[in-house]
Amino acid sequence: EPLWIRPDAPSRCTWQLGRPASESPHHHTAPAKSPKILPDILKKIGDTPMVRINKIGKKFGLKCELLAKCEFFNAGGSVKDRISLRMIEDAERDGTLKPGDTIIEPTSGNTGIGLALAAAVRGYRCIIVMPEKMSSEKVDVLRALGAEIVRTPTNARFDSPESHVGVAWRLKNEIPNSHILDQYRNASNPLAHYDTTADEILQQCDGKLDMLVASVGTGGTITGIARKLKEKCPGCRIIGVDPEGSILAEPEELNQTEQTTYEVEGIGYDFIPTVLDRTVVDKWFKSNDEEAFTFARMLIAQEGLLCGGSAGSTVAVAVKAAQELQEGQRCVVILPDSVRNYMTKFLSDRWMLQKGFLKEEDLTEKKPWWWHLRVQELGLSAPLTVLPTITCGHTIEILREKGFDQAPVVDEAGVILGMVTLGNMLSSLLAGKVQPSDQVGKVIYKQFKQIRLTDTLGRLSHILEMDHFALVVHEQIQYHSTGKSSQRQMVFGVVTAIDLLNFVAAQERDQK
């Protein structure tokens, strides 16, 4: 057995438009009618409502009807409940999964919650491996369901041993009777949507819809739904939504950006999952974080739909894509998950301010006199920076000697690579993860907040409520011999709460 199987392995699926269902090699399930009293909570997966979006479509000038398939009504709160249950049931049916076995899954959280929910009911041990950027709410729900959680670096490539995929496979090879159901490759993922989600949409719309818009992560949702719609409703256009920084969209030119990270969760990847059939997507749109969270908040405030950030991405694209539809036509959007997962993220004004998705003037509360002053007023001194090749031991000596707790790590040209902190280095040394002679590049981390000289002290204040420091950066445009230009970030300084307090105190003292 291989040590790991690539999540982007070539698909062996034989589905073709027009091929009889009787030739399918898979076990198919028909939607079942729910009894009045459910035998367990797993029976509350599927049969989610279709809700008309009344205000947002009109606000953006849509002539067509805009409908939302509300997947956050599933038992675990997301569309991923469907595939989690289906993968477990299919693994039980073919004898792969037996009582007492362990389920391991690399996930952005929602599939993990679905699997942990099913594992709690069915009696399996469950280990979820997820990147650090995923919300604390997801972690809390997983723990409450009895799952064990392993976190991995957000910026690790999918084929790196440190990625959530790599760590999951390492655990599988170490733990007896453990299984990775593997949402990236498992046919049960798109089949769950082909058999149930798509049929529900067709039934709820009486077979009449002209466009379907869905955000894409593993691709199982859009693949399964689109294949069924292509068979039953061939005139329906399928629109895929991919965040900026991901590479799922086609044509490839759409993916060209210097951005590699994004805040919206559960969609987009740096590889093409095996289950994603991009041939059934008629057109791709890219979405960005700001519009995703703005539209998610709009869905909550104006439509009462308590959905997550990827739902915002989907609707932001839908109001663009559906401009081509006329009166009497219908566009369906998939709202994948609930706001429950993001209470401390985009639902929080403070978080939105820190990330730059909300401006101070958007909030009406009274601010102190210094709130709208610029960061450049602080008069920061030149920063202490270190090269990635310097040793951890030497870096600790320098920081202690100069009285700093942290320093930016830059390359020879001064471009920011990340940050090192005294606390992080000492804990890594004590844990045996690094040696004093190791290069400081081994303990770089990139989960820090950046701020510009033109940003306000109010925004800085919000950042420092949650973080010990902020890195002050400025952009530099560099022209190359080819005539092309590129933008790079340079370090201007490091600012802490002490710097802000000293500035405010000094100004008030001078005024007296």
Rank of each mutant, 00 (worst) to 15 (best):
L387R: 15
V332Y: 00
V495C: 13
A407H: 03
E377A: 10
L347C: 03
E250H: 10
I238D: 00
V275Q: 02
H462Q: 15
V281P: 11
E250Y: 14
N341H: 02
E250P: 10
L254H: 15
D277H: 07
K367I: 13
H468A: 05
L460A: 07
I247W: 06
W369L: 08
F503A: 10
R509W: 10
L417G: 15
Q511R: 12
I390A: 06
V264Y: 02
I498E: 14
E412L: 14
H468P: 13
Y342A: 01
T344K: 08
G432S: 09
V332A: 14
T260G: 11
S481D: 09
S287L: 15
Q489W: 11
R278P: 02
F404W: 11
D362P: 10
T257G: 10
T454L: 07
L453A: 07
G423W: 13
Q511C: 11
L363A: 04
T261F: 11
H480P: 13
F357S: 01
I463G: 14
E250Q: 15
Q489C: 11
V440F: 06
L305R: 01
V443M: 11
K283D: 09
Y269K: 03
K402C: 08
S481E: 13
Q511D: 10
P383K: 08
K283S: 10
K320H: 04
Q487W: 10
I463Q: 14
H480S: 11
E412D: 14
H474V: 11
G423Q: 05
K484P: 13
E397R: 12
Q511M: 11
L378V: 06
V339F: 07
A506K: 09
V443F: 14
G379I: 11
K446H: 14
I444C: 15
R278S: 11
I398C: 08
Q406Y: 07
A431F: 02
Q447R: 15
V333T: 12
M425P: 08
E265H: 00
P408H: 02
V409G: 07
M352F: 04
F404Y: 11
S338K: 06
F346Q: 03
V264P: 02
I239A: 06
E365Q: 13
S428V: 15
V281F: 09
E291V: 13
L254K: 07
W371T: 12
E377L: 12
L325A: 04
M352E: 01
Q435Y: 11
Q511A: 10
N502G: 13
V280H: 03
V494D: 02
W370V: 10
E397Y: 06
T385H: 08
P388T: 07
L453F: 15
V375W: 05
K442Y: 13
V472P: 06
K449V: 05
C392I: 15
P273H: 06
I334R: 02
A407W: 01
M352N: 02
F404C: 06
S338W: 02
S427F: 10
E263V: 05
V440S: 14
F469M: 03
K367P: 11
V495R: 08
I498F: 13
V264A: 07
A301T: 09
S427H: 09
G312F: 01
A413T: 15
V386L: 14
D289F: 00
Q447W: 12
Q478T: 14
K484R: 04
P388K: 10
D510H: 13
G418K: 05
L335D: 01
R340A: 01
Q487K: 15
Y445N: 09
V415K: 03
G328T: 08
G493H: 14
C307I: 07
S348V: 15
E377G: 10
L248W: 04
E291C: 12
I390K: 02
C331P: 01
T274N: 06
P243S: 07
L306E: 05
S427P: 08
N502V: 10
F503E: 01
A497C: 08
D289G: 00
T482L: 15
E253T: 09
M298H: 09
V264G: 00
K433E: 14
T274K: 06
V504E: 11
T260E: 14
W351C: 04
T314V: 13
V443G: 14
V443K: 09
T391Y: 04
S310G: 02
G393F: 15
L387V: 08
A505F: 15
Y269Q: 02
V495I: 15
P336A: 06
L248T: 05
A311M: 05
K283Y: 09
A382D: 03
K446L: 14
V315A: 14
V409L: 04
Y342F: 04
E508G: 14
Q435H: 15
F404E: 03
S246V: 00
A322H: 01
E412C: 15
C331F: 01
R350C: 07
P436K: 14
M490P: 14
P388Q: 10
L426S: 14
V281E: 07
G328E: 09
K286T: 00
L464H: 07
I390E: 08
F448P: 08
V332G: 02
L363P: 15
E258G: 15
K359F: 09
A316Q: 14
S486C: 15
L384T: 10
S313G: 11
T395I: 09
I416S: 15
V495T: 14
G432K: 13
P368C: 06
G393L: 14
E303V: 09
G403E: 08
A382V: 15
L325H: 00
L429Y: 10
V473E: 14
Q323L: 15
F469S: 12
H462M: 11
N424D: 14
I300D: 02
A249E: 06
L378S: 07
E258W: 13
V386A: 12
N424A: 13
G245A: 06
G309C: 00
D467V: 08
E244G: 07
T274C: 00
R459V: 05
G379Y: 11
D289E: 05
I444W: 14
G418M: 01
R452G: 12
A506C: 11
F357Q: 04
K484E: 14
H462Y: 15
E252Q: 15
P273C: 06
A322T: 05
C392K: 09
G403I: 07
P251G: 09
G418V: 01
R340E: 06
E412M: 07
T364I: 13
I451S: 03
R488Y: 13
L325R: 00
A292N: 01
P368H: 05
H462P: 06
T279M: 14
T482E: 05
D405H: 09
D242V: 00
I390G: 15
M419R: 08
G414T: 13
K366D: 14
Q326K: 14
V332T: 04
L399N: 04
Q450K: 14
E252N: 14
R452M: 12
N288H: 14
S486F: 14
S486I: 15
P336G: 08
T389P: 13
V315I: 13
R452S: 08
Q435G: 12
V434G: 10
F404S: 07
T421M: 14
I451W: 04
I239T: 02
K320S: 15
E290I: 11
D242H: 01
E250K: 15
V410P: 02
W371E: 09
V332L: 15
F503H: 11
W371G: 11
I267G: 03
L460R: 05
D282Q: 08
I396S: 13
W370P: 05
T257S: 15
D362T: 10
L299A: 05
L347Q: 01
A321F: 07
P408E: 00
T294H: 11
T261M: 06
E290H: 11
T482D: 06
